[in-house]
Design a binder for these strands. Structure first.
Lengths: 184, 184
DNA sequence: GCGTCCATGTAAATGGTTACATGATTAT
DNA sequence: ATAATCATGTAACCATTTACATGGACGC
């Protein structure tokens, strides 16, 4: 699914502006499996409009800038349905931080710890944040997707808490870890 | 970490050809968090060589085509160490299949089931495959990364087996699901 | 005979991010 | 004052994938 189909998908849930589409993709229950920037949303909407897959109207608001609210057209719905018949592409999980740790011997023990703690902390924060969001109004399918994302975070946090110590059980840096200052 | 630094990382584990680097990235313990094609490996090695970060020699073999075996240089090691001091980029998890299911109401119940079963089966296969691979010779850090990948697969399979049914608890297709033929 | 594995490389196309450009309102 | 939120859009840049190009050995 490219940006165009993704935007179309969000529009099946209700009319929205480009700005709102991005917000939904970042804050909604599918946030765990996507990341998208304005630089791809706005051109995507422009193309969809040119192809007749969406319509739009301008909505002026007191104070805030006017927004272009997009609506999916019947042709748009058909195009999306068609796209969903194609086999989905395989998932990709990319992790820079795990690659760093994978080649951990090239870092000092201090740096390694820093990378690990930052990574774990990031997932802890995500876990805490998302378990606090209320998606009870969402459809079962959308809750399913969201909850699967949360389960992945939980699995990662659990695993790192249980097994992270192995990353530090070899020779420590000379002196570097006696200096416990620096961060927080 | 771009392809260049990734190749450099693999070369810290031992000399290798472009072909072997790809194999390691696909079959080694870091496979879960990367995907790379020849189209990015060969140009990357060319650039690394031009920058003096790797050396190479030609190795002829009986029968098989000759291969270019690359070695990391001291400058290469330094460049990689430098790269590991930069903050790692945030992870990305992208899933087409989950996006399909997220917008599941646009598919027939049959298609939805097909997508779900295919997705689950794919992760089951991955889980089974990777739990059968022996990485006891790898370093603790590399086993850590591999095992974390496996844990994610396990969490996904468990969650889908436990909760997947919710994707099918609404109105079934008219007729379509009484025809149980088709696949397998 | 056919498919797979080994082995390297280029070129075109794709798709996306980052930075730039603009600008009002509201909250600190 | 300053930052954040709302709001749209373009252009340059970047990285990667896909397809093309070539070819021998080995197993079925």
């Amino acid at each position: 699914m490219d940006s165009k189909m993704l935007c179309l998908g969000v529009l099946t849930l209700g009319d929205a502006s480009g700005y709102e589409i991005k917000k939904y993709l970042e804050e909604g229950p599918i946030a765990h499996f996507h990341e998208i920037s304005f630089g791809s949303i706005y051109p995507a909407l422009g193309k969809l409009s040119a192809e007749g897959l969406v319509d739009w109207r301008e909505e002026r608001q007191g104070g805030r800038p006017a927004k272009k609210v997009y609506t999916i057209t019947p042709a748009g719905t058909r195009a999306l349905e068609q796209a969903l018949v194609m086999p989905p592409r395989p998932d990709t999980h990319r992790s820079d931080a795990l690659t760093y740790l994978f080649f951990g011997t090239l870092m000092t023990a201090t740096r390694r710890r820093e990378v690990f703690e930052g990574y774990l902390e990031g997932y802890r924060a995500r876990l805490e944040h998302w378990t606090g969001v209320d998606f009870r109004d969402e459809s079962p399918a959308r809750r399913f997707v969201h909850d699967l994302g949360v389960e992945i975070y939980r699995a990662m946090v659990d695993f790192m808490e249980a097994r992270g110590h192995v990353l530090f059980e070899d020779a420590p840096d000379r002196n570097e870890d006696t200096n416990q200052g620096g961060k927080s």
